[in-house]
């Protein structure tokens, strides 16, 4: 047993000296951290905008929409719902994988993460920031498709219509 333990030291050092094991360059870890961070931020942005768009879509049907459930469901952007949901799941997985916030109880982290995304999506929709971003930002193409599919002539008119309710 003690021979095995002594061997550990010898084996490792001989591998280092022969160059069989080498340290990964610092850049490897820097790039890895950047990708993980960008991935995490992306999941937050995508899920926030997905929630904003879902709320936008539901409000576009106006009052009494619950009585036109078939129409609401047929117009509902399910793919955005799936993308938003997947982003949330990936975000939570990244929190677990990289042990971000591990000093806090996991259910508090997940609840805060999901709630803050829901609230951000709601705020973006309420303040009309989504309209501005849908016109100018990276979501422009996405929103154009949605407007075309739903025969909406002008997004500002739609917003005014929504706000009247």
């Amino acid at each position: 047993m003690s021979k095995d333990i002594k061997n550990i030291e010898e084996k490792i050092l001989s591998q280092i000296q022969k160059g069989e094991i080498k340290m990964k360059p610092r850049m490897y870890f820097v790039i890895g951290s950047i990708f993980a961070f960008v991935g995490f931020i992306s999941t937050i942005i995508v899920s926030t905008f997905a929630i904003s768009l879902i709320r936008f879509s539901l409000r576009a049907h106006g009052k009494m929409a619950q009585y036109r459930l078939d129409q609401v469901l047929s117009d509902f952007p399910w793919w955005i719902f799936i993308v938003g949901f997947l982003s949330l799941v990936i975000g939570i997985w990244l929190i677990y994988k990289y042990h971000i916030f591990y000093k806090i109880k996991p259910w508090i982290v997940i609840l805060t993460f999901v709630l803050s995304i829901m609230i951000s999506g709601w705020i973006i929709n309420e303040t009309g920031l989504d309209t501005k971003l849908f016109r100018q930002g990276p979501m422009k193409g996405l929103m154009r498709k949605y407007i075309q599919r739903n025969n909406i002539s002008d997004i500002s008119l739609l917003r005014q219509k929504i706000n009247r309710f």
């Binding site: 340290m23 990964k24 610092r26």
Partner: peptide, 10 residues
């Protein structure tokens, strides 16, 4: 110990 050495710069 080998893994630690490889990832030491991280």
């Amino acid at each position: 110990l080998i893994k630690a050495y490889i990832d030491l710069k991280g």
